[in-house]
Amino acid sequence: MVAPYLVHFLVITAFPIIFSMVLTLHRWNLLSPMQWIGATNFSTVFSDPLFWKSLWNTFRFLGIHIPLQVGSALILAVILNQKIQARGFFRAAFFLPVVVSGVVVTILWKQLYSTDTGLLNSLLMSVGLERVEWLTSPAIAMPAIAIMATWKNVGLYVILLLSGLQTIPKQVYEAATLDGAGKISQFFNITIPMLNPILLSVIILSTINGFSLFIEPYVMTGGGPLNSTLSMNLYIYNQGFAFYKMGYAATLGFVLAGIVFAVVLLERRYIESDTT
C-alpha cells in the first residue's frame, strides 16, 4: 500500500536529488553536453559576491520579518484571548491575506508602494510627512518587502498562538494572582514559558518560509535596487532559468539547503535550552 508513495518518492524526490548532486559537479546549459568540472561550482559559490549579497539579503529579510511577525502575532493573539466582542470577525479579518494568492498581494502592494502614484505616499503626504521610496531605495526596499510579507502571513501565526494560549490552564493565572503577581509579570513568567513550544514552531516555520522568499522580489523589484532585494531563491532562479547555468544553480540549491538546515537546528537548540 505504500507503493504509490514509494514510486512517487523515487521519481519525484530521489531521482531529482541524485541528479542535482551530479549537476553540482558539472557545467551544463541544458543544450550542450554536460561538462565535468569537479568541485569548481562550490569554490565559485564562495567567491561569488552576489551569492554573499543574496545570503545577506535573505538574513536581513529574516531579521526584520521574524521579530515583526512573531511580535505582532503575539500582541494580537494575547488581545484576542481576552473577553472580546466580535472575536470571530477579527480572527477572520486577520486571516484573510493568508488564504489569498501571493500574486494578488504583490500586485496590490506594488501599487500601494509606488513612489510617485502610490496610496501609502499619498497618505503620508496628505498629513504633511515626507514621501518614502518604498521599493526604489536600496535601504528601504527589503524592509518594505518584509512588512508586506508580515501583513500577508501574520494571521496564520495569530491563530497558532491563540490556540496555544487557550491551552494554558486558567488556574495557573489564578494562583499567580493570589501570589500577588501583576499582569505584566504574569505575561513574562507564565504566558511566554508556557507558549514556548508553540513559539518555537512559529519561529521555525517563519524561518523556513522566509528562506523561500521569491515571488515578492520577482514581481515587485526584480531583485533591485542595487541587488538589495535579491533573495537566495531569486538568485538561484536567475542562474538556472535566465542564464541556464544549471550546475551552478543546483550547487546554490544545496548550499542554501545546508544553511536552512543549520539555522533551524540552531534555533531549536537555542530556544529549547532556553526553556530548561
Binding site: 531521482f15 538556472g240 544553480a249 543546483a250
Partner: peptide, 24 residues
C-alpha cells in the same frame, strides 16, 4: 525506513529538486 524517508522529504528545500524536476 519509509517513515524516515517521509520526514527527510519534508525537510528538503524545494530548491534542490527544482532544476532536476524541470529537466525531468
Amino acid at each position: 525506513i519509509i517513515f524516515g524517508l517521509l520526514l527527510f522529504t519534508m525537510m528538503l528545500p524545494f530548491q534542490i529538486t527544482l532544476i532536476p524536476m524541470y529537466v525531468l
